[in-house]
Amino acid sequence: MSKLDYKKDYPLAEQRPELIQTPTGKTLEEINLENLLLDEVRIEDCRISQQTLEYQAQIAESAGSPQIAMNLRRAGELTRFDDEKILKIYSALRPFRSTKEDLLGIAEELEREGAVLNGAYVREAAAVYEKRKKLKGDKGSSL
């Protein structure tokens, strides 16, 4: 399939609804109140999938925003992790929370689970934190 273009494929829900599937395999149409009442659809089904985020990334790219596209691709990888795990990674990336090894450990774990963009991203953070003294124990030390 050729890459999506904002001019003809956006909004996805209106222009290309057939492309959208939740990570649990539901179609966009199936996400409705009736199905919620019937327990055919649950909150876990109301999630965006990596594939949909990839489509949105292509759309952003076509509109001249490579940065938004990159963010959406990183986000796509994060769809496979639960809320708690994501919050834990976020905490680890905050200043003075982690050692370099902690961060590299997270990067490896991410890469192991297929989140390669995020893995590289955390590696990059580890290198910058080391240089700019944002690692655990660096607080109060001068550059």
């Binding site: 965006i48 994060l78 769809t79 990674i89 990336l93 953070a125």
Partner: peptide, 20 residues
Amino acid sequence: DDGDDTVWSKAFLASAYASR
């Protein structure tokens, strides 16, 4: 630092929101 974040943690948060 005072805001208790780095650019990387903030940008990660951006991806976290988008992932939902």
